[in-house]
Design a binder for these strands. Structure first.
Lengths: 152, 152
DNA sequence: TTCCTTAAAGAGGTTTTTGTCCGAATTATA
DNA sequence: TATAATTCGGACAAAAACCTCTTTAAGGAA
């Protein structure tokens, strides 16, 4: 309804990494297993997050990914601007290229405050806090694995 | 950010049709021109809206599409449930299949009220009202045509 | 009846998103 | 040094979303 799958994977992975001991690289495979997400695809996403400075990566034995120093405070908005693109906050719900208070689509003034709530929410949530929430055990980052089915 | 292009085209077209004289079929071509949207694609969308009972269609001369009787009161939510699918209102922002108050993702309780605002908004807006808003001339359904560029 | 106009239907094409695979580079350790 | 473990980079593949084309059927008008 709001985020691409790529964004969802990125956010899940970042939160998961933020729950792990800082400075201890986390394996792509472990993240993928934990989130139940395609590993090769996730690797691409993590690489991209590295290029954008959110993560550090280490090759070879004991390699993996960890949050770049200071990036625990990253807001979801910062992440989404990378994964959804810089126009993430600018979109008209009807798809008009130009939709401002002056030249508005008929939904503009109803949509605007809601959109602003979304933006405020994304600005308000930080990896750190989300990671802590997960660490309490009250919240889940991924669906539970399906129960093993008996073989007919 | 929220709606597929197909949904955007559908909503735009429905509002446009609602601005036209009831009972007077509107040509697919006219709608497409007016909204600056691919005509053949729009035709598919309108056909689907017919099958779902929002529109009536007429073939041959003086043919076209018009709102089915009574459908001026259709809410955007009704439209979006058709174009985005029945899970439109159920989605977890992180993509979890199950994300409820009991088994929640770490964003759940922040996202929930915002999602409910979106749902309320979509339930609140009806074709009729949006059409009237457009008829005042204060709101636009499509981008203005690009100004003709001088040739070099 | 014949012609023109229109939507219907279905096949197919393109683009974007999502996902896979493989070889190369890098690193710790035995 | 050799080996195993890991990310990197690029090419490729599959699926979904978006869009086009062609033919057919239907309806109104000359």
């Amino acid at each position: 309804m709001v985020l691409s799958r790529t964004s969802q994977y990125a956010v899940q992975a970042l939160i998961y990494i933020a729950t792990q001991a800082p400075g201890e690289p986390v394996l792509n495979r472990d993240i993928a297993d934990r989130l139940n997400v395609p590993a090769a695809y996730l690797a691409k996403i993590l690489q991209s997050l590295c290029k954008h400075g959110l993560l550090d990566s280490f090759r070879g034995r004991l390699g993996g990914f960890c949050l770049r120093d200071g990036m625990q405070k990253t807001s979801l908005m910062q992440v989404l601007l990378l994964t959804e693109g810089p126009d993430f906050t600018k979109s008209c719900i009807l798809g008009l290229k130009e939709c401002t208070d002056e030249t508005a689509c008929p939904m503009h003034f109803k949509w605007k405050p809601v959109k602003n709530k979304i933006i405020a929410m994304m600005n308000d949530m930080h990896l750190e806090d989300l990671a802590k929430a997960v660490q309490t055990g009250k919240y889940r980052l991924a669906d539970l694995p399906a129960a093993a089915m008996p073989v007919a």
